[in-house]
Write a protein that binds this DNA or RNA. Structure first.
Length: 258
DNA sequence: GGCCAGGCGCGGA
DNA sequence: TCCGCGCATGGC
């Protein structure tokens, strides 16, 4: 099942690269594209087509993307059975994990994550999607304050222009080798990026699964859970994943935890 | 029509 | 360092 062309070994066999455009996912419990794409971590459509087929999921890369890119994007080297096993110790996560079983944390392109989450500040998800889907992530020439305002970025337009200018000087690889604290400090230097957006970029672009962004919804969940339980969950090495299960659960069921 | 949204930057205490 | 406020805009 494991092929030599894999970007990283897939010892657990949940998925396999078939060719330059195709990936097969064999463990259906580990990949729910709806949950992945509608859990508030990403605001546009994926660069692929996805279909269920004879007990497996077939992912076909579209446009200029290939299977290797998608493997990294969906982080298919991570076994979410292991993640869920770890988080199972928290009673409050049982329902959210059952509901969002196939959620995975994406590894989004750095620039896209930065832009998306600056736009997300003090904004709602339908409108974030509407705005982000107008942004051409391949064409930096359109990254002017005027254009961003036209796309509905509002007062965030100036932050976007400044930050995009600054990250041109930044080496993504160097950032990815930094510890959480250093990486966070680097991100906080960018205009429009505060603690919450920095955490989102760390989780959704750098795959720091131990980082849990706290927004208004998660803050309410923390109040509900109580300090002790919340501390235990949000200091766990998969706190970011736990946070995502809770966020998705609250967003779609509009229910309280437990 | 008013409140809210995956917050942030700024000025003043 | 820690408030409180203004901010663009549309969803509900």
């Amino acid at each position: 099942m494991i092929k030599t062309c894999l970007p990283e070994p897939c010892a657990h066999g949940i998925a396999e690269i078939i060719d330059s455009k195709t990936i097969h996912v064999y463990d259906l419990t580990q990949f729910d594209v709806h949950a992945i794409m509608n859990s508030g971590q990403v605001f546009r459509e994926p660069h692929c087509e996805i279909a269920k087929q004879e007990g497996k999921i077939v992912i076909k890369a579209t446009g200029d993307k290939d299977s290797k890119w998608l493997w990294n994007y969906f982080d298919l080297g991570t076994d979410y059975d292991e993640v869920r096993k770890e988080l199972q110790q928290f009673r409050a996560l049982h329902e959210p994990m059952k509901y969002g079983a196939g959620i995975r944390i994406l590894r989004q392109p750095f620039c896209e994550a930065i832009i998306s989450f600056i736009v997300s500040a003090n904004n709602n998800i339908p409108r974030i999607k509407k705005t982000v889907r107008q942004i051409d992530f391949g064409n930096t020439e359109k990254y002017t304050e005027e254009n961003f305002k036209k796309m509905g970025c509002g007062y965030r337009a100036q932050y976007l222009v400044k930050t995009i200018q600054q990250i041109k000087q930044i080496d993504f690889h160097k950032l990815s080798t930094m510890c959480n604290r250093s990486l966070r400090n680097e991100l906080l230097r960018l205009p429009g990026i505060g603690p919450k957006v920095a955490d989102c970029v760390m989780l959704f672009a750098f795959g720091r699964l131990d980082v849990a962004p706290v927004d208004v919804h998660i803050r309410r969940a923390i109040e509900f859970l109580g300090k002790e339980q919340a501390d235990a969950i949000f200091s766990h090495k998969y706190a970011g994943v736990a946070q995502q299960y809770i966020f998705y659960y609250l967003q779609h069921l509009k229910k309280e935890l437990l």
